[in-house]
Design a binder for these strands. Structure first.
Lengths: 116, 116
DNA sequence: TATTGGTACCTTGTATTGCAAGGTATTCAA
DNA sequence: TTGAATACCTTGCAATACAAGGTACCAATA
């Protein structure tokens, strides 16, 4: 699928890219969560992510020691892997905050310029 | 390079991803330009892009008929390929505007929530 | 007439990574 | 014991940013 009609959908996917790690760290900075709960939170703000995206991502962030996890029993099914942000994770998150702000600002400037 | 020290740099790259097509359309909506002039404009707002990124991208957008180009002589060197946005390009740009707004809004919400 | 520097174009190969699709395991209720 | 819901995870594909390397044009200078 590579006709111009599909560009928007494709680009939404691309825009999510790179922002996802940031979003996960943001969400976990506000409280522990497991894969499904994170997906749900993202969906609530219209950022749609697939399971196959989240799991490898959480594993990667854990390897980088930005996250850790603990197992917790659930009354609703199998045990859940609750992820928690680490101190290092919070440190990196601050950097990502700045990176996002810079990007958003840059785009804002271009946007204003393009209307002139 | 995949230690936690490199995460920020890596993520800045990832954040650019998907936003780049949007930026190029935005810039060209404000006036025609050629590869180097686009790179320069992006650099002015701290969005750093390599040549090897821009050229394939312009070619792709041209194939999708969001852009066209004309050759124009330069007094400063070889002729330049000036890209122009098409009507279809403007149409798609409107969609990308909306996609960006939605993403930015989503992140803003998560951000506020994570500080609570 | 070289040669050098600046500008501009483009391609190839690699690494990253989102996602669709497919798979396993646990709990509970019918 | 069967089915639905919930949770976990992996494999393979496709998209794409970038580093590195290459070609070509123009003007000034040696």
């Amino acid at each position: 699928m590579e006709n111009s009609a599909g560009i928007i959908e494709n680009n939404k996917t691309q825009m999510r890219r790179g922002v996802l790690e940031y979003c996960i760290l943001l969400i976990l900075a506000g409280g522990d969560g497991y894969a499904s709960s994170i997906i749900k939170k993202l969906k609530e703000v219209n950022i749609i992510v697939a399971e196959g995206t989240i799991y490898p991502l959480l594993i990667r962030l854990k390897k980088l020691e930005l996250l850790t996890y603990r197992w917790e029993e659930s009354t609703q099914g199998p045990p859940r892997k609750y992820y928690m942000i680490t101190d290092l994770g919070r440190e990196q998150l601050a950097g990502l905050d700045a990176a996002w702000d810079e990007l958003a600002k840059g785009i804002e400037i271009i946007r204003k310029g393009s209307k002139a």
